[in-house]
Write a protein that binds this DNA or RNA. Structure first.
Lengths: 150, 150
DNA sequence: TATTGTTATACTCTATAACTATA
DNA sequence: TATAGTTATAGAGTATAACAATA
């Protein structure tokens, strides 16, 4: 099926085959992540948000930028997570306008739990790769990510 | 940052590093796909729907299963796409209850356009991989996908 | 004036539950 | 009874536009 598409699009067949695979893998991984998130009554975005807050204490605007969302959208997300006790807003440093977002102990515990589940859920996808393949996949991922977000 | 998480989770470090990369790449690809979809006033799900309909004429229930959605959710998605003239519902074969979904010429044109844009957007992520790495990535993707959806 | 964040509004996406029609 | 699909409802996610407070 991808073959017929490849022909119709008339691009570089090799790139297209690779892109097809990349997209398929992407949807598989998204499905796994969503399943884990749903199990804890989180959306994928909320889980990602908690994942960021595990290691950072960003301001609202920077958080919105990282997630690729409008500030107004983030306000709602943070509202709901705050109402659940997963994070806190607090006044941010020198600038009287800005707000910092901190994960709570409960939020951190949930993030930790979810992360472990994601690893366990995805590990089978990755488990039968041999050592050399793992190294190569890591390298490829790193190079693919390096090109982005300059 | 991934390193500290790895230590806290106490699992197999090697798997976790690989999973971290996989998740990061996943979000990058989702961002690219979403950007393309938005450009054509489609959601990611709608674009995926059109992608399936390029090569298939499924019934509603099978479509819902493929997308991992409830039938009621799919009804709404198909409603909106049908209102835009991107697809058609028609009575499905022998079973008087079932409904087949067909892409229209306009829908197919949009799917084709979007697919080309996705390929062009993702190709740079993939372009500097050498021949052997491409083969390996394809093989890995295939193996990763084979495990799923039996 | 420009920036940070929130609020108001409107729409899409999503699931659950109840329903209709067919099997 | 069971299945295919829709409708009703409710809530979350999202963006745009208008706003307040601060810079």
């Amino acid at each position: 099926m991808a073959a017929s598409r490849r022909r119709r699009s008339g691009g570089t067949g090799a790139d297209e085959a690779l892109v097809d695979s990349l997209v398929q893998v992407t949807f598989s991984v998204v499905a796994v992540l969503s399943r884990v998130a749903t199990r804890h009554e989180l959306s994928l975005t909320q889980m990602r948000l908690l994942g960021i807050l595990r290691d950072h204490t960003p301001k609202m605007s920077s958080l919105a930028r990282h997630l690729g969302l409008e500030r107004s959208t983030l306000s709602g997300l943070v509202d709901r997570a705050e109402a659940r006790g997963l994070l806190l807003r607090c006044p941010g440093g020198g600038d009287g306008r800005s707000v910092e977002v901190l994960i709570t102990r409960e939020g951190a515990a949930l993030a930790e739990l979810g992360y472990g589940e994601v690893v366990r859920a995805l590990a089978p996808l990755v488990r039968d790769l041999r050592g050399g393949e793992r190294q190569l996949l890591l390298g490829i991922a790193e190079r693919m990510l390096r090109g982005r977000e300059p």
